[in-house]
Lab assay of single mutants.
Amino acid sequence: SRSVIRSIIKSSKLNIDHKDYLLDLLNDVKGSKDLKEFHKMLTAILA
């Protein structure tokens, strides 16, 4: 869910600018399909 993804971003080791950017992107995501794609992208970034 959106709140879980937000929590993953906030607890990541990324610097604050990257976190803010990803949180802004997350706010722009519409629909469950796009949310799944965003989660895939985030997982790849944090891997």
Rank of each mutant, 00 (worst) to 15 (best):
H39Q: 11
S1P: 11
D24Q: 14
S11W: 07
L26T: 01
I9H: 00
S12K: 01
L25T: 06
Y21K: 09
E37M: 11
K33A: 08
D17A: 14
H18L: 15
K19M: 05
K36A: 14
Y21N: 06
L46Q: 03
R2H: 12
A44F: 14
L26P: 00
I5S: 01
E37W: 11
M41S: 05
L25S: 04
V29C: 09
K40A: 10
I9V: 04
K19T: 04
L42G: 00
K13S: 12
S1N: 12
K40R: 11
A47Y: 09
K36F: 14
I16Y: 07
R2M: 11
D28P: 04
K36I: 12
S7W: 13
V4I: 10
G31F: 05
K19A: 03
H18A: 10
I5F: 06
I8P: 00
L35F: 05
S12M: 06
V4C: 10
A47T: 11
K10R: 08
V4R: 13
R2I: 14
K36G: 08
L35Y: 04
L22Y: 04
I45P: 01
K13D: 08
R2W: 09
F38Q: 00
D20S: 14
D28M: 11
S7G: 11
N27E: 05
I8R: 07
K36W: 08
S3R: 04
S7I: 07
Y21E: 06
M41R: 07
I16L: 11
S3Q: 13
K30I: 07
H18I: 15
I8N: 03
L25A: 08
D20T: 15
L22H: 00
I45C: 03
L23Y: 07
L42D: 03
A44P: 02
L23I: 07
H39D: 04
H39T: 10
K13E: 05
D28K: 14
G31E: 06
G31L: 07
S3C: 07
T43R: 09
V29S: 06
L26E: 05
S11V: 05
S7P: 00
F38E: 01
K10W: 06
S32Q: 08
L26A: 01
K30L: 05
D17W: 09
V4T: 07
D20V: 15
A44G: 10
L46V: 07
I5C: 03
D17M: 10
I5Y: 07
R2T: 05
R2A: 12
K30A: 05
I5H: 02
D28I: 07
S3M: 14
L14C: 02
L26N: 00
L23K: 01
Y21R: 10
S12W: 02
D20I: 15
D24T: 14
S1I: 15
I45Y: 06
I5R: 02
L46H: 01
N15M: 07
S11K: 13
H39E: 10
A47P: 04
L35Q: 02
K33G: 08
R2S: 06
V4L: 11
G31I: 04
L22W: 04
I9Q: 00
E37H: 10
L14A: 01
D20A: 15
R6L: 09
I16V: 11
G31K: 07
S32W: 10
L46F: 06
F38Y: 03
L14K: 01
I5Q: 02
H18G: 04
D34V: 06
S11E: 09
R2N: 08
N15K: 08
K33R: 06
S1C: 08
N27D: 06
D34L: 14
D17P: 08
I45Q: 04
K13G: 11
I5M: 09
E37V: 11
V4Q: 13
L35T: 03
H39C: 10
L14Q: 01
I5N: 02
N15R: 10
L23C: 03
S11D: 11
L22F: 05
L35N: 01
K36C: 05
D24L: 13
I16W: 09
D24V: 10
S11F: 09
V29E: 02
